[in-house]
Design a protein around this nucleic acid. Structure first.
Lengths: 345, 345
DNA sequence: TATTCATGCCCGTACCGCTCC
DNA sequence: GGGAGCGGTACGGGCATGAAT
């Protein structure tokens, strides 16, 4: 006997099911399924009848039922941290790429990047139906921290195993540093994000290599988190040192904090000190002075990560191209604005 | 006959089901369900046995099956637009509130706020299983734009019908304007977000009311979108006018663009012109000079909106308190920094 | 061979019924 | 006999498989 129609509220009142479509089209539910999935052969007339019924009734497939039957959710998860502009750009890029492949994306925000937080976030995403996750946060643990059969792709090359497609973070540090050296700065100081972030580490390596190649002295690196507040704190440590004339901050938000510290002690950008950031966030061009920065191709990065993850879930989707990918689209680019200039004498 | 175990890849290989738990605990699946849901009566010993089995087997309920059986997804959607920092804050607040009530949140980003975009976003969220949506974008259409039985709550009071709990946007405009008038400015110019956004409109109303109350002249309002680029464009229109000494921008990002326009023509903030923003985004305190701004209690706002929506889906959850809510927690606050000062003579 | 249909099953939950005190 | 405690059965809406025309 039919169960009483679901109690008001959130029920899908009178929602059309596949059986309704089948009846309207005069075929079996199975045939409707075939038509909609494109699998199997269906006569042209039958297909038209089904398509017509679908449109007439406004049929929308029930995701829960499909998931239950197939064991597939077609949902991915992403773990992000902080509230920086770059994280938003990463999330947006991942969302777009995910949808392009016919998947959905759920995000989990972690406040700390310890293994416990990551594990909890992974659990949450999994219970939310994620079939795999993208990690846009540092993973220091060598051991497995996700359940078996739950693929993980990291935005950096630490765990992805396909470093070819990732933006060359070392190049970012090198470009910024060489730009300042070419302007005539004797050396470049580095204000850096958390040491455990591979991105931060790689940018520092690029910075160091550029200095060494140029025979310039290599100052100590300052480390903090990614917030402007930390940029300010670190900037204040070196702001009054007259030998500091060029600073490479590993994110725009850090650069803003650094600039503020300089401003506070009366040193002008770029007259007294030049500052370079990374990311090219939307406001970078409107700071006073506009910030010179290294732009990253976030979209390419996230697209590759998502594609790599999906290729692990679905044998029909090939992994990203890797080494043969268009290098142009993965290369960072220096955006020269007014926060950098030749050092004053 | 058992279907061949799901083909590798993304299958839930050997995932434990309720029946497994039931067998391990020596009870029926029904009893396991009762224990887990807390509904119905179960003897203490039985409950312990089930709990133990759940832990031992690492059982995790299958959301798809539950959804199919109950008709409830316990998922909400949110429609956001732009990539401003404030939208991120809104999204984060909504996510937290949603999870507190045992729901999940999916976001849909729209690039334009026309009725077609909104409808498409709503469809997308619904097909993703959302039972209702929160709209953090302007809704100008008077007519119904969502399917019936699909509740919508807007972050502003245009459609929510419960204006009591919403931040008083007029107060924001008033506070900023009065602050500048008190400093001695003859009048205050207004650089505003899109006219169709209720927040923008209300802030302008507050600004106008403050001017009228003070007997100050009321300049024309400048309208654009929420980006710093538009703030710059609008700022450039008035930057060279020497009578302009105080500007109220309806977001921090607009204020940054405005400040840039002033800077470009050689007018200093706050010496020549004072600027006030809205939102207090993280970098506001680190701009040069630090930005005076009006902070909004985003968390309170989003919490109320989510609660209101859930109360429509679940009769057991009461709606937010409305008029009797703690006014302190919903009131905006002026954060005075260095971008405002008395006008020079 | 080309189409189509009928059945079983995915995994929880609602409802009803059966014990046993 | 009424209630506590528990099990059996029928779904929900799709998809996979094999049978049937």
């Amino acid at each position: 006997m039919p169960r009483p129609k679901r109690d008001g509220a959130a029920s899908d009142r009178a929602r059309v099911s596949m059986a309704d479509v089948a009846q309207a089209a005069g075929v079996s539910a199975q045939t409707v399924s075939r038509v909609l999935s494109g699998q199997g052969t269906v006569r042209e007339g039958t297909r038209a009848a089904v398509d017509d019924a679908v449109r007439r009734l406004g049929y929308q497939p029930n995701l829960a039922a499909r998931t239950l039957a197939t064991g597939r959710t077609r949902r991915l998860g992403i773990i992000v941290t902080g509230s920086s502009t770059s994280r938003v750009m990463v999330e947006a890029g991942a969302e777009a790429a995910t949808r392009r492949l016919g998947y959905r994306l759920t995000a989990a925000v972690v406040s700390t990047t310890g293994i416990r937080s990551l594990r909890r976030a992974a659990d949450q995403l999994r219970s939310d139906g994620a079939e795999g996750i993208i990690v846009a946060a540092p993973v220091t643990a060598r051991d497995r921290w996700t359940p078996k059969g739950f693929p993980v792709v990291s935005l950096d090359d630490a765990t992805a195993g396909s470093p070819e497609f990732v933006t060359d973070q070392r190049a970012i540090g090198r470009m910024a540093t060489e730009h300042l050296l070419e302007l005539g700065h004797r050396t470049v100081w580095c204000v850096c994000g958390p040491a455990q972030w591979p991105e931060a580490k790689a940018r520092v390596e690029g910075w160091r290599a550029a200095l060494v190649d140029a025979g310039a002295p290599v100052p100590d690196v300052l480390h903090g988190d990614w917030t402007p507040a930390e940029g300010y704190r670190m900037g204040a440590l070196i702001a009054t040192d007259p030998s500091v004339t060029g600073i490479f901050a590993t994110s725009d938000e850090l650069a803003i904090g650094v600039s503020h510290a300089l401003w506070e002690v009366g040193r002008r950008v770029p007259d007294d000190v030049s500052v370079v950031g990374v990311d090219d966030i939307p406001i970078a061009a409107y700071l006073c002075p506009p910030l010179t920065t290294v732009r990253q191709p976030f979209a390419t990065l996230t697209d590759a990560a998502v594609r790599l993850l999906v290729s692990k879930l679905d044998k029909n989707t090939p992994p990203p191209l890797g080494g043969s990918a268009d290098p142009e689209s993965t290369r960072p680019s220096l955006v020269v604005r007014a926060s950098t200039a030749a050092p004053s004498l």
